[in-house]
Design a binder for these strands. Structure first.
Lengths: 342, 342
DNA sequence: CTGAAAGCGCTAACAG
DNA sequence: CTGTTAGCGCTTTCAG
């Protein structure tokens, strides 16, 4: 068992003064004499006193804990956002409790309940791909508990959000394809309830428009973000009578899966098909050919989310603020056609 | 601000009974009459009562929190281990607080201090690559706070550990190379203070011995686990007068970096050089050629670590137990030489 | 069967 | 300048 840690009482007894004197002394209360303060601090240091956070929490009704819920932990994107959140949380003396929804609505709901029971002071959440019902979020809001969404968002009129400029990024990709002489541009999207799915689709459509290309519904594929489902989507695209000559996906994982599938079809990137990813994982530079991808400021996204969170805790009833972060299209081998053609 | 949650007192007042009656009723105390219990539970459910963990914590001196410290968050290996830890923790009604040491000894020490102040009930830790001084761990042990190490370990006589069978895996890789007609086998290791570095090196040496190959010091390279440092190590290997015809690295990240470097040298894997990774990330199947790698039971490693942790909390002063998990060599394209040669 | 009181560690009035 | 008291939410004797 854990040894009982040193308490104010221990110090007070040893010094022959009262608990409140020690409490005050430790916090430089003006009422306490300088040498008393010195004596108290010396002993506290010696005994490695540190205040019991549960006693403080009980008193102040604050846990200094933020609940973070992400669809999964093992994706670079999410771990990197979490790093950003933790950095800012630490600066504010907060701890972060991370839960994974495993892309499940049910788990997301359970996680929220558990974290509420643990009395986290608020939430930073990225929606699971299954989530279409928002009542569990409404409940957080009604309880007046701070809540911030990042990347995949909803209820934007009530909840501050941090997102990437998905629309613009998708538009840019589409145009980039066009400039590299692709004319049959396909997009593998995610579940339609996801905000990012939708925005990237709109950007794709806008890009087609900008380039004077017609939208062909058969080039708009969908998957559930799993490797298998992405592979199937790719297979459907490649099996079309007139298959695409350029594909981009809602994220890098999807595109890596597409890459494998393209290879299985005996096609070459970028010779036969151009390919662009989304979220720019480290591995984009490792695959052959290296993958053009939309670089997300992931750490920044976490930092901003945490920033919004603390704004919320400090200013009750603040109007929800939406921050959109700029992304960069990092052009590598997979999307550049050398020997031109039309 | 967060609304005050419902407390026992609220329920007691509303029911016109005392707090202790409610407390007992909620826990089916035999002294309380059945209809009182029913009434109490009904109201508690209606009001969404849940006990205040800080009050409980203060009373019982338990936080139900485990501090987990990993060298970084964004590596698939660590996120996956963490997932395993969280699963088991949740089963026991515990939360996990994750901190990253960013491979820094200083940060590791600070994290421990902060988590001790937060009164975590114990620690599950993977050492930073810088750590050579173990006094901060000794302090945990002296405070009689449960501690478990995983993957990179130390103080094995005092602390339970979970590791992979690094020695055997490295030996197997070396032999696998030999069977594929490699004779100049190189190993890119990590910092020597890391237990895994050392064990993999020993396995490598044993493998050479098994295959009747002489150890050549110039084929034993070292890096600090960063991409840059791994690239440099590879460059040194490839620049040798008699460069290796097979390389394996302490982890996949290192090997991915090596792969890029090999490509820069205009060499082909596996034609010119065989390559094998360690820890089998998802991306091993995405790179071209696909990467042979040692598959670690990462989730399992987390689960076992958490299991050991709870054994420790439940049995004071248990003898430290070491669990070694089996790995599997997953053979893919990067290590198989088709057209044989000698 | 139920209530009152003490105490976990701490702060903040309120008294001296 | 310092001590006493009450109370944060809960469990646990000890008394009825």
């Amino acid at each position: 068992m854990v040894k009982r840690r040193i308490s104010l009482k221990d110090i007070a007894n040893e010094l022959g003064v009262s608990i409140s004197t020690v409490s005050r002394g430790l916090r430089d209360h003006p009422d306490i004499s300088d040498d008393m303060i010195a004596k108290i601090k010396a002993l506290a240091g010696l005994r490695h006193y540190s205040p019991n956070p549960m006693a403080m929490g009980l008193l102040k009704q604050r846990t200094r804990m933020i609940g973070v819920i992400v669809p999964d932990l093992v994706t670079h994107f999410f771990s990197s956002v979490i790093s950003g959140i933790e950095e800012v949380a630490k600066e504010h003396g907060y701890f972060v409790i991370i839960s994974s929804s495993y892309e499940s609505y049910q788990k997301e709901k359970e996680n929220i309940e558990n974290l509420m029971k643990a009395r986290v002071e608020g939430f930073i959440i990225c929606l699971s791909q299954e989530t279409t019902d928002y009542s569990h979020f409404e409940q957080i809001i009604e309880s007046e508990i701070p809540l911030v969404f990042f990347d995949r968002v909803c209820l934007k009129d009530k909840v501050p959000t941090v997102t990437a400029d998905s629309f613009e990024a998708a538009r840019r990709i589409t145009c980039h394809f066009f400039e590299n002489n692709a004319r049959r541009i396909a997009y593998i999207s995610g579940p339609e309830q996801l905000s990012i799915s939708d925005e990237r689709k709109s950007g794709y459509l806008m890009g087609l428009l900008d380039c004077g290309l017609a939208f062909r519904p058969e080039y708009l594929e969908k998957c559930n973000l799993s490797t298998e489902s992405a592979a199937l989507a790719t297979k459907r695209l490649l099996s079309l009578p007139n298959p695409p000559d350029a594909i981009f996906g809602i994220n890098d994982t999807v595109v890596f899966a597409a890459m494998k599938e393209i290879r299985k079809f005996g096609l070459k990137v970028p010779k036969d098909i151009l390919l662009v990813g989304f979220t720019d994982e480290f591995h984009a530079t490792v695959v052959e050919p290296t993958l053009t991808s939309v670089m997300h400021p992931t750490n920044e996204m976490g930092r901003v989310a945490a920033g919004l969170f603390f704004e919320l805790t400090e200013n009750v009833g603040l109007l929800p603020k939406s921050v959109e972060l700029k992304t960069t299209l990092v052009i590598r081998e997979s999307s550049v056609r050398i020997g031109e053609m039309i």
